[in-house]
Each structure stands twice: as structure tokens, then as C-alpha cells.
Design a protein around this nucleic acid. Sequence first.
DNA 1: CTGTATCCTTAGGGATACTG
DNA 2: CAGTATCCCTAAGGATACAG
Lengths: 149, 149
Amino acid sequence: MGKAKDDSRQSGCPVAYGLDVFGDRWTLVIIRDMLMLGKRYYGEFLDCPERIASNVLADRLKKLEDAKIVSKQIDPVNQSKFIYKLTSKGIELIPMVLEVITWGSKHSPYTNTPPELLRKIKKDRAGTIREIAECLKNDQSFIAKNGWV
Amino acid sequence: MGKAKDDSRQSGCPVAYGLDVFGDRWTLVIIRDMLMLGKRYYGEFLDCPERIASNVLADRLKKLEDAKIVSKQIDPVNQSKFIYKLTSKGIELIPMVLEVITWGSKHSPYTNTPPELLRKIKKDRAGTIREIAECLKNDQSFIAKNGWV
DNA sequence: CTGTATCCTTAGGGATACTG
DNA sequence: CAGTATCCCTAAGGATACAG
């Protein structure tokens, strides 16, 4: 695993580019956890309801780092582990993730998205995005207490 | 190939649901072609710049049909082939695809997205979506003449 | 505990032949 | 041309052992 994503589909289409970056079953799960649940540590990502395997997680974190979507730094409060954070390129995925949430919530038979969140997204996209970005700065989770876990 | 997508990650998260449907490198390429380029026939999908293989295409079309995102009917003007169309569930992916385009255009080194399209998306999301939906009704392509191909 | 490496099975998917 | 089927190799990724 872990060969660099080859990026071979240089069609010029931004959709194809996006798929080269997050076109698999796990990458967006990690980004969701960072974006919506405020996760930052390896162990937190491992502990997701979809049960990601540890090697897959390591691989995706590395690829996200290579793609400059995630930064990896030594955790200042615990020198023996890393803290993973979204870069601005990663944070800019918020609007897309919100649209996935909107669509998925409407069509998934299993969804348990907090209606409060959906209402907010619908009513005031920019406001929601600002709110999430704000939470990210304070290390907090936007919906952690309300659903999905 | 072609085993039904198993949908095994019923975490309740709409992102995970979305990924079960379009979390691979090809599905969104097909949807992009339907949405943005007005494609409707097998041969048209085959003829994409990313060079999708014919068996992969058949597999994805079947899965999209199973997921009720695409409908497959005999083409009324040529009984020997099928016409593939987005259902309302598929058309509702427009906002998400537009966000992928916005993000991808900003960050891809290869992008050639028509600035006109980006300007429209940014300025008036609802308007753009309405416009695309309108084009879909008239069998036309929104950006076919301007880029990506 | 944080993360990496190894093993091994299955799914993804390219090339291409084939059928109507 | 529209679409399907086969062949076969590679990548994805689950289980689990291992190292700091």
C-alpha cells in the first residue's frame, strides 16, 4: 500500500481531480471526522463507527498529507504522538461535505443526521460554514453530541 | 464484478452512505458527464477523456440504476439501444458536484474549468442549478462547448 | 497507547474478445 | 455501433503481529 496516488487522469476536469484525491471509500470518512467531529489523533480516527483498519488509516493520512489537505505535527502536549489538522485546502472541503450530508441524509435509509444541522445548512450555508470553521479553531466538534456516534 | 454494493457500513452517517454509492474513481465521472455534458448513451460515456473501460462502465451504470440514481429505458428513436437518464435522486447531486468543481478547480494543477462557469456557481448557486436542470430537460450540455473535452 | 509492517484474500479494473 | 463476458493482474484493505 502507500504507493503515491498516480494522478494519471489529467483530463483537466476538476471532478476527476477531486476523485483522484478522495475517490475511495475511506478518505472522506476521515475528513468528516476532522471536520464535523473535531478529531485530531490517530486513535480517534481509528475509533469510528465504520471500523477503519489501522493500516488503511495510516495510508490515507499519508496521502492526505501528501495532497496538502492534512498537516502532521508533533503534538506539543504529548511529544510521543502526532496531531493531524486540516490545512486551508482541507477546510475548503466543508461546502462539499455539507452537500454530501444534505444529499445523503435525504436518501440514506439509515441516516440519523441531526435535523438541527440540516436546518442550519439549508437556511444559511455561509453561516454554517463559518460556524464549523470557528469550532475547528477551538478544537470542538460541531455535531459530536448530536448524532452519528 | 457487479456484485451488489453491500452497503455494509450502516453507521447512520450520510457521508458514509454517499461513499457507499459514489465512493470510487469512476461513478462521479459518469454522473458529471450526464449532469454537465448532457450525455445519455453508452457510447457517449465510453468516449470520455479519462478512458473508462467498457466493463467498468457497464458495472457502474448497473449500480447507479440499482441505487435509483439513473434510469435505463429503451431509446424511443432507436429501439436497439438504451437511454440513460438521471432520476430526481441523481439530479439532486448537482449541488454537490458543483462544490467538487469549485474545490477541484481551485486546487487542481491541471484544471481547465471555464471561468464563466465558476463565476456563475459562485455568484448564484441556485440560478446555476436551475440552469443546469433546464438544460437537462432540453438534452443540452451546459459546458460542453467550453472545456474539459 | 501510537503507529507501522506483514500476510493474504478479494475487489477493482484494464485489455480484449465476443454477441446481436 | 451497443453492450456483455472473460482473462488476468494489481490495488484495496481486513486481520493481526509487531515496535517504540
